[in-house]
């Protein structure tokens, strides 16, 4: 979890060490070998076999086996069938990222700038929810948002919800759950980059007669952009692939692409499921590349 926060931090502080003798260089390769092999065998090779599986003959089955027929049409047919949950996933992930930024920025700012000696405690509190299982927390949202729960009662009393209005089994519930689950992934990188800002720059803004709002807009916000970029990526990517929130807090109308991929794999429809999975990965890679390029912070890793 602190790892996520340090994503941005690690890159800039780690200047490459000086050029080395060839013996030391061999040591580097030896150190990388076991972990690198693991990633190669169980991350890269699987991606290749996923791509291969997406091109299998869709008429195969687990019993009779699948044959490789370079069936590129799989991508077309799956998109025709599943473009709705696919678009919905990206839309929910976008909403989630926006809400996480809206909620996470004030919290990260409060911890980095205002918390004083409570800084470490507040950071620990941000990480603490991780220690109760993701699923159990999502289930307790199901209870909090249930029709006779106090959140619905309060919103009905405030006339925000109609007397028959409900939260559970709506888009709002799914996005609330997603926002909740991925909020720490937004807060930690934001905190890491806000923490590093030289306070004197902010004071200088005030000295030059900028109001707090102008100082924030022209000094603090631009300087925290690496955190914003890292945080939005770390929220958007897992949110787009999630299906737990849609399953537990929504109805089939809120179904996300993850629900379908999981269901199709479980049913043994490998070519279709693999094609959907490859499309999701490709869409995310393209979106991330565009986003990183436009926001101008390629120094992310």
């Amino acid at each position: 979890m602190s790892a996520v926060g340090q994503l941005g931090a690690a890159s800039q502080s780690a200047a490459p060490p000086p050029v080395e003798r060839s013996g030391r260089r061999m040591t580097a390769y030896l150190l990388l070998l076991p972990g690198g092999l693991w990633l190669l065998l169980f991350f890269v090779v699987p991606l290749v076999s996923l791509l291969a599986a997406s091109l299998y003959d869709p008429n195969g089955s687990i019993e009779n086996g699948f044959s490789m027929t370079w069936h590129w049409q799989n991508f077309g047919t799956t998109m025709a069938d599943y473009w709705r949950p696919f678009g919905r996933s990206l839309w929910y992930a976008l909403l989630t990222t926006a809400f996480c930024l809206l909620l996470g920025y004030p919290l990260a700012y409060a911890i980095a700038m205002r918390a004083g000696r409570w800084k470490n405690l507040m950071l620990a509190l941000v990480i603490a929810p991780f220690f109760t299982s993701f699923l159990i927390r999502t289930l307790s949202w199901k209870m909090l948002l249930s029709d006779n729960g106090f959140v619905v009662d309060a919103l009905q009393w405030l006339r925000i919800l109609g007397p028959d209005g409900r939260l559970l089994a709506t888009t709002a519930a799914v996005v609330t759950g997603l926002t909740y689950n991925f909020l720490p992934f937004m807060v930690l990188p934001l905190y890491a980059s806000l923490e590093k800002i030289d306070r004197r720059l902010i004071e200088a803004g005030g000295d030059l007669f900028a109001g707090p709002v102008t100082t924030f807009r022209t000094v603090t916000l631009p300087l925290s952009m690496p955190g914003v970029v890292a945080g939005t990526l770390l929220t958007f990517i897992p949110a787009a692939g999630d299906y737990i929130n849609a399953q537990l807090l929504g109805t089939p109308k809120q179904r996300m692409i993850g629900n379908d991929i999981q269901r199709l794999f479980a049913a043994g429809a490998y070519p279709t499921a693999a094609a959907l999975s490859v499309t999701l990965m490709a869409a995310i890679v393209v979106l991330v590349l565009i986003y990183v390029r436009r926001s101008g912070t390629e120094e992310l890793v």
């Binding site: 699987p46 991606l47 996923l50 692939g241 999630d242 993850g258 991929i261 794999f265 693999a274 999975s277």
Partner: peptide
Amino acid sequence: PEIVLGSS
């Protein structure tokens, strides 16, 4: 995304 890692 986890679903991609898992399915591959």
